[in-house]
Write a protein that binds this DNA or RNA. Structure first.
Lengths: 204, 204
DNA sequence: TGTACATCAGTGAACGCGCGTTCACTGATGTAC
DNA sequence: TGTACATCAGTGAACGCGCGTTCACTGATGTAC
């Protein structure tokens, strides 16, 4: 086993054992999940990804059947940061997650400035709509799950209006994040986040 | 002058006159504006674009300094279909355009199914955020203009709330369109459009 | 009005380059005896 | 427990291919006389 110091991932062990392979695999996927959200699904190549993960190109196909297979896996991993965001909001609310708490966690400048750790819909929606069948399936599952999570947070109105509100909230959140990233003027960018936050707060 | 019959553009004249050049230029830009929205800013190459426009690759640089220059021009043209959408909504409202009329023109299945003729934000927001400085400038101008148009449609509340509502509406519209394109399930796709339409109607 | 000539829109092949993918190889791991 | 060997994670160079861009060329246009 060899100890590697790498710019991207810090210090890690690289070797030939099965455990080493699993760690390398995870490292590639986690990195791809970030880079894809940052640069788009076509924005970074296999060679650069492997280099950032501290390995060489040739080994790629020991881990993935194709680039598209990595994309599908990385997008699934990227979506987990949504779950992580939900969890963090829950922690801030002292374990009692509210719709407002989630909104506040999502519609913030830090999220605008860091697509690589943020919502995959906001970072990649058009790419996902055009993507490989497997990747699209992953995105569709997450879309349904996200609507369900928001629906349950909004409340127990049994007339179906909480689901409708959840869909509106998700749309507004994703749209606002996309547009706030487009705005070069920081104050406009903030205005978009704040206007949407205020309006969505009143929704529930 | 030569008469050309082409799959993409029908019958058109191709020649060497200045007027011919202007027509060819316009044809390339209009086509690029569609294809980019359909396939993403990296989704189609110079050669294919020129072929679709009925000319050969070599002539490209008689029209554009670089691919990026075409992207900037095509994105500007693509945004004009927003203006066109506003105009069409105005025509449907018998010249008296309303906020609701515009919402109804935007949040429809036909728009979901045809990105190539639709809203550039919904089709390309993440691409635009990562794009060339000129393209980004074009997108920023349009963002401000779109907010202004919606603000004036929503009403003359002078407390600034109509601008806030305009921003929320734009965010929700763009987000809903992006997500409805992602949804493989047609009924979910429609549900997203309808939920957002209903909620935004109540906004103004 | 007619002719000679410069311009330049469009052609089609070629260029270097980066991409996804393949491959023969190396050497650590883990297993069979 | 020790040794021989098969496996396979990772290497580094090479592959074909499509991309943006360049270039020498063609021939219609438009202008100067």
């Amino acid at each position: 086993m060899v100890i590697i110091q790498n710019r991207q991932e810090g210090i890690f062990a690289m070797g030939h054992s099965q455990a080493d392979k699993a760690r390398t695999h995870e490292r590639i996927v986690e990195l791809a999940a970030k880079r894809f959200r940052e640069k788009g699904l076509d924005g970074i190549g296999v060679a650069d990804l492997m280099k950032d993960a501290g390995v060489t190109v040739g080994g790629f196909y020991k881990h993935f059947a194709s680039r598209d297979a990595l994309v599908a896996e990385a997008v699934a991993t990227a979506f987990k940061s949504w779950d992580r965001m939900v969890d963090e909001a829950r922690a801030k609310d002292d374990g009692l997650l509210t719709f407002t708490g989630l909104l506040e966690q999502y519609l913030i400048e830090d999220h605008t400035d860091n697509p690589s750790d943020g919502c995959t819909f906001a970072a990649l929606a058009p790419d996902l709509a055009r993507s490989d069948i497997r990747t699209k399936a992953v995105a569709n599952e997450q879309l349904k799950r996200s609507i369900d999570v928001l629906t349950s947070l909004i409340g127990a109105a049994d007339d179906g209006s909480s689901r409708q509100k959840a869909i509106v909230a998700l749309s507004a959140m994703v749209g606002a994040m996309s547009l706030s990233r487009l705005a070069e003027d920081k104050s406009l960018s903030r205005e978009i986040l704040q206007a949407t936050l205020a309006a969505m707060r009143q929704l529930a």
